[in-house]
Design a protein around this nucleic acid. Structure first.
Length: 925
DNA sequence: GAGCACTGC
């Protein structure tokens, strides 16, 4: 290794200071703007100091994969070593490191994952967290974890690099937590000055006014709009700012491209239309000498379309971009920036528990970052389309992500590493900005919904499912689907679920180029399944990866090109599928093959690369199994269709065909309206195939609120599936309890509610069982729905005694109580006793028979005679999904044996859950 | 009838 430090990089001058700080302190903060060279030079300084040796490494984290690769590449080149030897990198699917590696550049997610295996991070003696000011969930978790770890590992050094303004916050945090001095080393940037100009809506053209003689310059000779035109809206304000900058550029030399920031795709189109209107032929005819090329840039664009912004070009350019251009992508040659000051920010709604994407004013830090994008090649100018006062009143920083997302995965991670056992542990963990109690308890609730945790005496612990879940490197809801699929007996269902889960964790590989929407839609429609977007996904998979194998790169590239699919994302999809299925195999799950549901769709069969002969294969996984497994992760994303007929008054002003058309549209719209969990309302996203004929019940993989609450990918479900999966999340209400002479039983109508949705409605319940799932099951299975049970229970007296009370009970709660009391153990006993096979003469035989019953009905309470003593405890808390029972049989000694379980409604119980008293009496007659 | 950007054992 050869250590040289380019003298033109500002950080080189601070080398001595940095070395000194790292020697004397455990935590060092290096702050500096882009271009200071801190990212590449600091690791070199550390290596030269001798860190990253004696069996320990230096780990350097980057927020993005590409960055991790390129940083490692550049450092290796500067040190003149082979990449993968002393300097290596590790990102998902790609590990270029060796035993000789002393410096490992990784994404922050990789380091986070390593904590699980190696909680003390003993592989490292130095950790560099780069770009800490981005404050992503991963970075905040890492910094929080390291806050707790550093006192236990005095030999471990932490270097944080960040933008200047954030460094104070990091310094204060670590100084306070570790009771030491935390040096901050300021490194100047190597950027050009940027002039910031404020032009709020309706104001005169400030840039031109600052240049004598320009005030009356025409925006463009062809459009005839003078610059003074008061701009009432953002698109015209954007156009005027660009016009000013174009004029400015014509009077100066050097780069002249303009970067316009927009909040989203919709805004991009609006700005583009305004710009084309203003620049007229100059924006159309690229053969003109003064042509202006208008491009857009956002993440969902195809690779080819994105690439255009980075290609060399001769004419002036205006690039309209979303936030991708703020941090992830650096557009070269930008001299000017136009910043309307808005962005879509992801927020988590605490009341509705859904993700929201509102358009909000950006923070000062974000505005400065945007302005900084034009100072990289020459003196720049940034025009802000809001006032200086507006800027001053904005928040200093964008709220860190940890305060804006659901915390389920953070909590899961903390439980699995063992740093938290209560919600308080989480809020008191060393986070720089600790989330509040409400957000944390929501995180715990999410884990409860997924069945990942058990609560005991105020302490929360991961159960086996939760422990497995924490090992699966994907979103926890998606991980839950995998674990559920692993439990189902149908072969190959797990493989199908993995295909879908992998799809859902990546960007959709289906592309829709702006000018070819229709053709792309038409081609993609071949894969559509009208009832489930997830089956569509599988159809796409079978088309792209017949036989489950990835075709050669060139074949896949060719296929992708003609089908409006992204080659890169298809490959990522396949990579992730492989990673997940290998992992499942390691966790001893039977994966199988994701074979087509029912042979190829005839449409698909006619396509060139289609797998012929699939039709002869029997269905290898069942569609119900796939959807049931997925539902385990999506319980709070179910929706019930609400049809409200449009009112005539809505069409009062319309006549004839126009009226008919409006009514039809309103009717269609009214069918796409769903009541979701916790009183929310949502609609199927127009891109989903399910929207064409909205089913009465759906589940959705992802609810996001923008213009309204949209369900992105959907599938039809049978809501009854949710009942067993939800367990004690379900609430049961009873109505109309009465004595039915024909059925010979107390009968009530029960409704099972999940998050306020009636997943099982108006089902008759016999004996007022508190477990309507069982009762319903019984009624159907035993053919008792129409009621042929002879009246032989001892209900008469109970009903006689309580008839008036039952009829008078007005509120649901008291009805519930009464009906529950109606279920006495005698009734259960009689019923079951009648069904016991005569051959049973001992508890062991009873258990055997019972086991057979359970095989068919897996939610039965486990009954093991060996555990009988345990049941003698006076009180047990039993989930409604469990099935306590009541048995009597004869022992080998001829004496009757009985296990009696009875329900007792407990009005004192805080939850709607039911406390069950289980007196166990091996009867001695 | 239309959604910001990242990331993982």
């Amino acid at each position: 290794m050869k250590f040289t430090y380019p003298s033109e990089l500002p950080v080189s001058a601070s080398r001595g200071e940095i070395e000194q700080a790292v020697r004397s302190s455990q935590v060092v903060i290096v702050s500096g703007q882009t271009g200071s060279g801190k990212t590449t030079q600091i690791p070199k300084i550390l290596l030269q100091m001798g860190r990253g040796s004696h069996g320990h490494q230096i780990v350097h984290t980057q927020p993005r994969r590409i960055a991790a690769r390129t940083v490692a590449d550049r450092i290796a080149a500067e040190l003149n070593v082979q990449l993968g030897e002393e300097v290596g990198y590790q990102v998902r699917f790609d590990d270029k490191s060796s035993p000789a590696t002393r410096l490992r550049v990784v994404t922050d997610g990789i380091l986070l994952a390593q904590i699980q295996r190696d909680p003390r991070l003993s592989a490292y003696d130095t950790i560099v967290i780069d770009e800490a000011h981005e404050r992503s969930l991963n970075i905040d978790f890492l910094l929080g974890y390291l806050t707790a770890l550093l006192p236990k590992r005095r030999d471990l050094k932490l270097i944080i690099t960040s933008a200047t303004i954030d460094s104070v916050k990091f310094q204060e945090h670590f100084a306070k937590a570790l009771h030491t001095k935390v040096p901050v080393i300021e490194v100047s940037g190597r950027t050009y000055p940027v002039q910031t100009i404020y032009e709020p809506l309706g104001s005169p053209p400030a840039l031109m006014n600052s240049v004598p003689g320009f005030a009356s310059v025409q925006l463009d000779p062809d459009s005839g709009d003078p610059l003074e035109t008061a701009q009432a809206d953002l698109p015209t304000a954007v156009a005027r700012a660009c016009a000013e900058l174009v004029i400015h550029s014509s009077h100066s030399s050097g780069p002249r491209d303009i970067l316009v920031f927009a909040a989203g795709e919709h805004d991009i189109h609006e700005y583009e239309a305004a710009l084309r209107h203003h620049f007229g032929p100059r924006a159309e005819d690229m053969r003109r000498a003064d042509a202006i090329e208008i491009l857009s840039l956002y993440a969902r664009l195809s690779a080819k379309e994105q690439h255009r912004a980075f290609q060399a070009h001769s004419h002036q350019r205006i690039i309209i971009a979303t936030n991708v251009a703020e941090t992830s992508l650096t557009v070269p040659g930008i001299r000017y920036v136009v910043d309307p000051g808005l962005a879509r920010i992801s927020r988590y709604s605490k009341s509705a528990k859904v993700q929201r994407l509102p358009i909000e004013p950006i923070s000062q830090a974000s505005a400065d970052q945007r302005a900084g994008r034009c100072g990289r090649v020459a003196d720049g100018i940034a025009i802000r389309l809001y006032s200086h006062d507006d800027y001053e009143t904005r928040p200093r920083f964008t709220e860190p992500e940890i305060l804006r997302t659901s915390l389920g995965s953070v909590v899961l991670h903390m439980l699995s590493v063992g740093v938290a056992r209560t919600a308080q542990d989480v809020t008191e963990f060393g986070f720089i900005d600790p989330p509040d109690m409400k957000a944390v308890s929501d995180g715990f609730n999410e884990l409860t919904e997924l069945g990942a945790i058990d609560r005991k005496h105020g302490e929360i612990r991961l159960n086996p499912l939760g422990r497995k879940l924490s090992r699966i490197p994907i979103d926890i809801r998606l991980g839950r689907m995998i674990l559920q699929a692993a439990q189902t007996s149908t072969p190959n269902t797990l493989a199908a679920v993995i295909v879908v889960v992998a799809f859902l964790s990546l960007q959709d590989p289906r592309e829709r180029p702006e000018d070819k929407h229709d053709e792309a839609d038409r081609l993609h429609a071949r894969f559509e399944d009208p009832a489930s977007d997830f089956v569509s996904v599988l159809n796409l998979w079978h088309y792209c990866f017949p036989e489950g194998k990835s075709p050669s790169s060139s074949a896949l590239r060719k296929l992708a090109k003609g089908e409006y699919l992204s080659f890169l994302r298809l490959r990522q999809w396949h990579d992730l599928y492989r990673q997940l299925s290998q992992m499942c195999q390691q966790m001893k799950m039977k994966v199988g093959e994701p074979l087509p549901a029912s042979g190829p769709n005839p449409e698909i069969a006619s396509l060139p690369l289609a797998q012929q002969g699939r039709g002869s294969l029997a269905c290898s996984w069942d569609s119900d199994g796939l959807h049931r497994a997925m539902l385990a992760g999506l319980l709070s994303n179910i929706g019930m269709q609400v049809i409200t007929d449009p009112k005539a008054s809505q069409f009062a002003g319309l006549k004839g065909p126009a009226r008919a058309k409006a009514i039809k549209r309103a009717q269609k719209r009214s069918r796409n309206d769903y009541r979701g969990a916790r009183g929310t309302h949502f609609a199927i996203f127009p891109g989903s195939a399910v929207v064409k004929s909205p089913p009465s019940w759906i589940m959705s993989a992802g609810l996001v609120e923008t213009s309204r609450l949209w369900a992105r990918y959907c599938a039809t479900i049978d809501p009854v599936w949710a009942e067993n999966l939800a367990g004690d999340l379900c609430r049961v209400t009873y109505a109309e309890p009465h004595w039915s002479a024909s059925k010979g039983a107390a009968v009530a109508s029960s409704t099972v509610l999940l998050y306020g949705l009636p997943i099982v409605a108006n089902k008759p319940v016999l004996w007022g069982s508190i477990n309507p799932a069982e009762a319903r099951d019984f009624l159907i299975r035993q053919g008792l729905v129409e009621g042929d049970i002879r009246q032989r229970f001892s209900y008469d007296s109970f009903i006689e005694d309580n008839r008036s009370i039952l009829q008078e009970a007005s509120d649901e709660a008291s009805k519930t109580r009464l009906v529950s009391q109606a279920a006495t153990e005698e009734d259960l006993f009689d019923f079951y006793n009648d069904r016991l096979p005569a051959t049973i003469t001992s508890l062991a035989a009873l258990a055997k028979w019972w086991k057979g019953e359970r095989a068919q009905r897996p939610d039965f309470l486990t009954f093991d005679p060996a555990q009988v003593d345990r049941l003698q405890e006076r009180e047990h808390s039993v989930k409604p999904g469990d099935y306590p029972d009541h048995w009597q049989t004869q022992g080998t000694d001829g004496r009757p044996l009985s296990l009696r379980l009875s329900y007792v409604y407990d009005p004192q119980a805080k939850d709607d859950g039911v406390t069950v008293h289980i007196p166990y009496l091996p009867w001695a007659s």
